[in-house]
Amino acid sequence: MSPADSNARPLRILVCIKQVPKAQELQVDPVTQTLKRVGVPSEINPPDANALEIALTLKDRHAAEVVVLSMGPTSFDESLERAVAMGADRAVLLTDRILGGSDTVPTAYALSETIQKIGGYDLILTGEETTDASTGHVGPGIAGHLDLPQITYVSEVRIVDGTVRARRTAEDGTEWWQTAMPSLCTVNFGCNKPRSPTLTGKIRVKRGGVIAHWSCADVGIDPKKVGLLNSPTIVAKVDTIRLPPRAGHIFSGEPKETVRALLEALIRDRVIAP
């Protein structure tokens, strides 16, 4: 996995992808207080699609191999197939009932083991965070497990002379970092425009054999380290927020009139001074 090896074989880039319910459709079931997932259309977690786009751009430039991987139920095949149709070479789904309810500690562990089983990687990309869990802990967690350099919140990745250069959005400015390979970057949402699936890609998916399903036993994952019971954190309860009702004075019509009505209301309600 040294830069020298990368001359001998193509670079291998792994992209961690999670399938999430479409953000706009996120709703809490009023009875069970859990996220309604049934019947909600899914998508690739948006920042993960940006990560994939970075990988595919590097593939175009360096003839890299792009492998997407995910941990979840077989319904995640939908997103993995989309990723392959967009241009990824193949996909791995770690799927096993014992993984259910895993928090970020087992998730990072199980993905790390899967990554080691795939092997031969030079660069790992994840999204900055998911839209359903929004922790952003899994990417750095994987880097911690695998003891890799990590650069978080990146918008651009270049491979220069066998090193990774990445542009990071920090608190006070943008930074360019350089690390040896292999390393891990987490990618900013919206930093590029993910490409659409191509016809050739769709045909490859249709022919089959692009997604491998692995169980924990296949990978050698310790069952005592995954799942709900082996997750350090639990969600003890969820309170629905009752936001105070808003007045909802909505004006529509001719601009002069609506603006006049609005200003009257704002002054009447003493939101702005007359």
Binding site: H137, P140, G144
Partner: peptide, 10 residues
């Protein structure tokens, strides 16, 4: 977040 994410896995 960068630090916490790495640390909690370690």
């Amino acid at each position: 977040r960068d630090l916490g994410g790495r640390l909690h896995a370690i």
